[in-house]
């Protein structure tokens, strides 16, 4: 009896974590692959739901992104205007967005010149809109981007048949 009591700790001691290590290794490899293949050129904004689409296009490079959620219009994660204001205004151009976008466009042009590229090439922008956003807001934001020199406009979507 006493001998058995002495033995127990040595049997139960030292948790066998080999199988857990196996599992963790597999999960780790899977996650690394996931992150790597993503490239993360486009990250979804937090408080909006993007629409589903059958589009197979993915962004080729990092673009300036405009996010329109239920409350705010954001350019590069900076709050610019309230969505409510955009909905109510009659003008096609969102006044507060224009100077911000034009400034960013100028910086992009300077960077393109410094690299020896064509500075007058149309600027690209990705607009992330909530899937229940009204067309009115979408059109105004689009018009503003076009006015400010960003004429290659793309909309972010969630791919349904992504491989």
């Amino acid at each position: 009896m006493s001998r058995r009591g002495r033995d127990l700790p040595s049997v139960g001691g030292g948790l066998n974590i080999t199988s857990m290590m196996d599992m963790f290794t597999i999960v780790l490899v899977f996650l690394f692959k996931q992150v790597d293949s993503e490239g993360n050129l486009l990250t979804s904004a937090d408080n909006l739901v993007l629409p589903l689409s059958t589009s197979l296009k993915t962004p080729k490079e990092v673009n300036l992104s405009v996010v329109v959620d239920a409350e705010h219009v954001l350019i590069d994660n900076e709050k610019i205007e309230e969505t409510e204001v955009v909905t109510k205004q009659d003008s096609l151009l969102v006044g507060k967005m224009v100077p911000v976008l034009e400034e960013k466009r100028e910086i992009e042009k300077k960077a393109a010149l410094a690299k020896g590229e064509d500075a007058e090439e149309a600027g690209s922008i990705i607009v992330q809109l909530d899937k229940n956003m009204a067309y009115d807001v979408m059109y105004k934001v689009m018009a503003t981007c076009g006015w400010s020199g960003y004429t290659n406009i793309s909309f972010a979507v969630i791919m349904i048949n992504a491989e």
Binding site: L31, V35, S55, S154
Partner: peptide
Amino acid sequence: LIPFLITIASFQKLGIVEVNLPER
């Protein structure tokens, strides 16, 4: 590492839809 990677990995593949806009 695992929680960190899970937080940065997005399981929805994001794509884009291009539209044409008339030039200024």
